[in-house]
Design a protein around this nucleic acid. Structure first.
Lengths: 217, 217
DNA sequence: TAACACTGATTGAACGATTAGTCAAGAGGA
DNA sequence: TCCTCTTGACTAATCGTTCAATCAGTGTTA
């Protein structure tokens, strides 16, 4: 259960590479076999009797934990948004800049366009969980009086959404970032600044908030 | 030049339908012919000598004006953000809910993943133009003293990004919106509220702003 | 009017290439 | 010998594309 065959792992790696760059239909069993360094496509059927389809499922399953991610140590819950939100934004944009998650995103997006099950998996395991965590965190901060009361379903979407164009630029449309040269850190600073100021309770200034909640940096 | 053959138009329609639902590779010349109501795939080669590839290019070219869109009547420039931003958000989400733009988005996203030229077209004709308009508008509002000074490259991204999760939910991941039932109008109200409050000049209240700038609704 | 030819539009059948998947046989240890 | 792993050769189907033939009009000529 724990020890996977080396060959199987090699095939899965090659399949992710091929599927993500060429798409499910564009990648052929032979090209995957070649990329995995094996002589015959027949060997793939020894490890994945279900053929190409099972291979795709196995690749997705192989990285499902990564997709889930965003394990939320409850420690974050108590820390103030001035600290937590930039952390989340940095983690998000860092993911968009890493090769494996990029390939996974290419594969998953491409397949989600045609396969409702994949779209559903993305929505439920990825998006809904992420939004649920953000919403819970923001609600808790409202209860603590650090943010003014509002609809956290909406603010959770708005918060993560603010970084989507930049992430898409990183991962898929380099021309977008080149157009004005906005760096990730600049964007994080400005947009979280707007977000927090927009949700600051009445009559509280930035300096007062930092002192009251013990912001580290 | 103006009068296109009916048949050619029928084939283009069928091709958009097929390409967007099955992808470029997934859609076959025969299935497109069938969807267009013609008996033989050979007819497609009479109208598009370049074959399947030219057919794809023709479908994209057919709707290029729609992709550009966002013609910006200068009248918008002078009107206050309390009016303009919800208008933009509504137009954006309405587009995400319309069938033809949805199909186009499916096709374009799917192809942009594998074809750098398509990705570049999306970035330059779509994203960069849209961001440039928003940035210009926001800068102008800063000059008018209706928003406090800030990096408008970042706020333009943040603004349009806030609606991306909702738009994606509309067009691709229905499970996302079902998860908490947030409506488009609720989201527009809350998130633009946060955005505007976050960018309000120092010492100006919401009521004061509305009276000073003559917000209609 | 009738026969004809020309042109654009449409068809069914076929070709060659490529694909996912199969199979029997072999290699190499235990 | 037995079992796991690996291979090259093969199959059956499907794909994009080509091609010769045909159809429907539309003048043109006798």
């Amino acid at each position: 259960m724990t020890e996977e065959s080396d060959r199987r792992e090699e095939i899965l790696e090659a399949a992710l590479e091929e599927f993500s760059s060429k798409g499910f239909r564009g990648a052929t069993i032979k090209s995957i076999a070649k990329a995995a360094g094996i002589q015959s496509p027949a060997l793939i059927y020894w490890y994945f009797q279900g053929g190409k389809e099972e291979l795709l499922q196995a690749v997705l399953a192989r990285h499902a934990p990564v997709i889930q991610a965003l394990r939320h140590p409850e420690t974050l819950m108590e820390r103030p948004p001035e600290e937590v939100l930039p952390m989340i934004a940095r983690a998000y944009l860092a993911t968009a800049n890493s090769p494996i998650p990029q390939r996974l995103a290419r594969l998953v997006i491409g397949e989600a366009l045609r396969r409702p099950e994949v779209a559903d998996m993305v929505a439920k395991r990825g998006a809904v969980r992420g939004l649920w965590f953000l919403k819970t965190y923001l609600e808790h901060q409202v209860e603590l009086g650090r943010l003014r009361p509002h609809d956290t379903r909406s603010s959770a979407r708005a918060l993560i959404g603010m970084f989507v164009p930049q992430a898409v630029g990183d991962a898929f449309l380099p021309a977008l970032k080149e157009s004005d040269g906005l760096t990730d850190e600049e964007h994080i600073g400005t947009s979280i600044g707007i977000f927090l100021r927009g949700l600051r309770p009445e009559g509280i200034t930035a300096e007062g908030a930092e002192k009251a909640w013990g912001v580290v940096e």
